[in-house]
Write a protein that binds this DNA or RNA. Structure first.
Length: 539
DNA sequence: TTAGGGTTAG
């Protein structure tokens, strides 16, 4: 008995070392084992493969006189994790002991290598063999590639086939809701979680917190957060990012201090949240302090996103020179996002001279770099340099880069409706359009003059006006007001930043219709109420 | 005791 128990313990230790990346220690345990059964060999194959020694893993696997289904599945997983999905597929096809784990590992391998079609093909071929993990793999694959609608429809299919969802299913679905801003569905999932008595661990807890933050219900997010018995850096970061998005700068800082007190180490995402919180609330002194502490105290290396937050913070506060100095001191060269932050600040503070200088810097960026096309084209357009705009657009077409079209989402009666800028595809578009015309007339009476600054197309004034009116968030909000009961808050998610004219119109609409309007743009939440916005026009 | 699914930002 004693002998067998030793092997049992040693195998556990070997597995542990393999999983925490201590391959040397794993090897030593393996070499010193008096008896190596198939379980120990499987664990060693996994330890080698997962730590990058695929050929050693393969050699050990090939030498095994006896194999279990785990042996085969370990090889499939190792090949997938190291990016050789074709090799994994060859093992999968050849595997004489194929079981549901083999299918799941292979489907996940396709998902993780951005081959969703192949994943779905296998998923469909798996037929009745599928278990909850198979479904979860497919659903999380869709969420990872931002196919949120497909994730939800796959979940509905899972329910139709009477497969019981698990905590992992809920985590993926909540992530989809967070991205879509689908609060009603998120609430439904939370209720479902309670009814099923699912265990709310750090994964599920964080998914709930994040969903409530991103869907604009900060109170519910904090309720869940406070109820968690265990919180990791993800949970803290989600709350801090959430508070930042809602413009609660002081609260974000207090939360960060609490995180520090509880001994949870912040990561780079935590600092993105913290610094953007300072930025949204104009907390310059605090922002400077945390930026310098992030490496000195917390050993988190500032990345370009953190510099971007700081440029934004300093720029908004009118410290344009300091922002410029910071850009010059960056260890990596600035990208369009960083220069763009400074350019926005120049516009707010009406510094034409620096604006010109920054524009020059922007124009020096590589036009062949995909990320720069759109920004450059807008800069040229603002200077009325239409030839260059044309060149940028042609380059974009040539390279197959397309400008991200403005897109807004709104959930009405458990259905997420999607609107693109100037989009006439929605079945109720005629009514929406008439409604917006009517709103326009009312706003003109109130003295609203459309601001065309953010419509950078070489078109005449009248066309510009209609292009503004049909920005996606405006269509979505109009649709929301038309299709929901009086007094119900409107919640819209937009993929880009709100333009200044839409921002003004939203304020007026919140007063005109006595509605709370929440718009989550790329940067933060705007809560429009009674003619003003929670961002205090500072965004 | 060995094999498969889950979270923050971009």
């Amino acid at each position: 008995m004693g002998f067998g128990f030793d092997v049992f313990l040693q195998t556990g230790l070997l597995d542990f070392y393999g999983k925490v990346g201590e391959l040397g220690l794993a090897r030593r345990v393996f070499d010193e084992m008096p008896e190596r059964d198939v379980v120990a060999r499987n664990a060693m194959v996994a330890a080698l493969g997962m730590n990058g020694f695929l050929s050693d893993a393969r050699k050990l696997f090939d030498e095994m006189s006896e194999r279990t289904s785990s042996s085969w599945n370990t090889m499939i997983t190792c090949y997938c994790k190291l990016g050789d999905v074709e090799a994994a597929r060859r093992i999968f096809d050849y595997n004489p002991m194929k079981n549901v784990v083999s299918w799941n590992a292979m489907i996940d391998g396709y998902c993780k290598s951005n081959q969703l079609m192949l994943a779905r093909e296998l998923f469909d071929r798996a037929g009745d063999l599928k278990n909850a993990v198979t479904w979860n793999t497919m659903i999380s694959g869709y969420v990872q590639y931002r196919e949120f609608g497909k994730a939800i429809s796959t979940f509905q299919q899972m329910q139709a086939e009477n497969v019981k969802p698990t905590e992992a299913t809920m985590v993926s679905l909540l992530s989809a809701c967070a991205h879509l801003g689908a609060l009603d569905m998120g609430n439904w999932i939370h209720t479902y979680i309670r009814r099923q008595n699912f265990k709310i661990d750090v994964f599920l807890g964080n998914a709930l917190v994040d969903m409530y933050c991103k869907c604009g219900n900060m109170d519910a997010a904090l309720d869940v957060f406070r109820s968690l018995t265990k919180r990791n850096a993800y949970c803290w970061s989600s709350v801090i990012v959430g508070l930042a998005m809602h413009g609660y700068g002081e609260e974000a800082i207090a939360t960060f201090d609490q995180m520090h007190k509880e001994g949870v180490k912040p990561d780079h995402v935590t600092f993105i949240g913290l610094l953007s919180a300072c930025s949204h609330s104009g907390l310059v002194i605090e922002g400077r302090k945390y930026f310098s502490e992030m490496f000195e105290v917390y050993r988190v290396e500032p990345g370009i996103e953190h510099y971007s937050c700081m440029v934004d913070l300093l720029g908004r506060a009118g410290l344009l020179q300091e922002a410029l100095e910071l850009i010059k001191s960056m260890p990596v060269s600035a990208n369009a996002a960083v220069w763009g932050s400074l350019l926005r600040a120049c516009r707010i503070h009406k510094d034409a001279k620096l604006s010109e200088q920054v524009t020059d810097q922007l124009l020096k960026l590589d036009p062949y770099d995909g990320g720069n096309y759109v920004f450059l084209s807008n800069v040229y357009a603002s200077l009325n340099r239409w030839d260059e705009v044309e060149i940028c657009r042609n380059l974009m077409a040539e390279k197959g880069v397309h400008k991200t079209p403005g897109c807004s989402l709104i959930e009405v009666d458990n259905v997420v409706h999607e609107f693109m800028a100037g989009d006439a595809a929605h079945p109720q578009f005629a009514q929406i359009s008439a409604f917006l015309d009517d709103v326009d007339k009312k706003l003109k009476v109130l003295g609203h003059v459309p601001d065309m600054e953010s419509v950078l197309h070489d078109i005449d004034k009248e066309e510009k006006e209609s292009a503004v009116r049909y920005h996606s968030e405006r269509i979505a909000v109009a649709f929301g007001i038309m299709s929901t009961p009086r007094g119900k808050p409107i919640r819209v998610v937009k993929n880009l930043r709100a333009c200044s004219d839409c921002h003004t119109v939203m304020k007026l609409m919140s007063k005109l219709f006595t509605r709370d309007i929440f718009v989550r743009d790329r940067n933060r939440f705007h809560h429009f109420r009674d003619g003003s916005c929670s961002c205090k026009d500072y965004w």
